[in-house]
């Protein structure tokens, strides 16, 4: 009976959840279709574009290639779990402030991949940021604003009173 629903318990955005779904569903499908969390986006669904990135046990992975069933007992974090206490995560603030998005479709994935990086490295170099985000594709913006936003958020998370560089906001005069 491969299509009978299975019940799964795991931790989602710091809360325990139980959900029933068809056993061959990917985590992406379970999140969007069975849990109603549509912040995680469908992209290529083949592991190429990075748009479906979520954190499992703190590590960024592609939810289109993770089986829901493989997540039993694990910690899953989606973009819906980033803001807390009525305020955005510093990365979300920085992305908005710098316009590090155009259509925004890839943004949840970039935010989570960047959060995982900043969890490991408080002061990442530009190269480390590029490397950490190299599996996430954005077809609108180019990546410069995204790198700058990650650097700005990193500085604020270190407690620095950082502001965006004027040329980031207004261009070079």
């Amino acid at each position: 009976m491969p299509d009978a629903k299975v019940k799964l318990a795991f931790e989602l955005n710091s809360e325990p959840v139980e959900v029933a779904f068809a056993p061959h569903k990917t985590l992406l499908e379970v999140l969007r279709e069975d849990l109603g969390l549509t912040g995680t986006k469908h992209g290529c669904e083949l592991g190429e574009c990075g748009t479906c990135t979520v954190l499992v046990d703190g590590k960024p992975v592609l939810s289109c290639l993770v089986l829901g069933l493989a997540c039993a007992g694990h910690r899953v974090k989606t973009v819906e779990g980033m803001a807390g206490g009525g305020s955005l995560h510093p990365l979300q603030d920085a992305f908005a402030e710098l316009g590090a998005a155009q259509c925004g479709y890839c943004t949840p994935a970039f935010l989570l991949a960047a959060e995982a990086l900043l969890g490991e490295t408080a002061r990442p170099t530009r190269d480390e940021i590029k490397q950490a985000l190299s599996g996430n594709l954005c077809r609108c913006t180019g990546y410069l604003k995204i790198y700058e936003a990650v650097e700005l958020a990193a500085a604020r998370l270190r407690g620095e009173d950082a502001k965006p560089a004027p040329e980031s906001l207004y261009g070079v005069r």
Partner: peptide, 9 residues
Amino acid sequence: VSTPLLRNM
């Protein structure tokens, strides 16, 4: 091999 995300998996 591939990307950091895929190497995590």
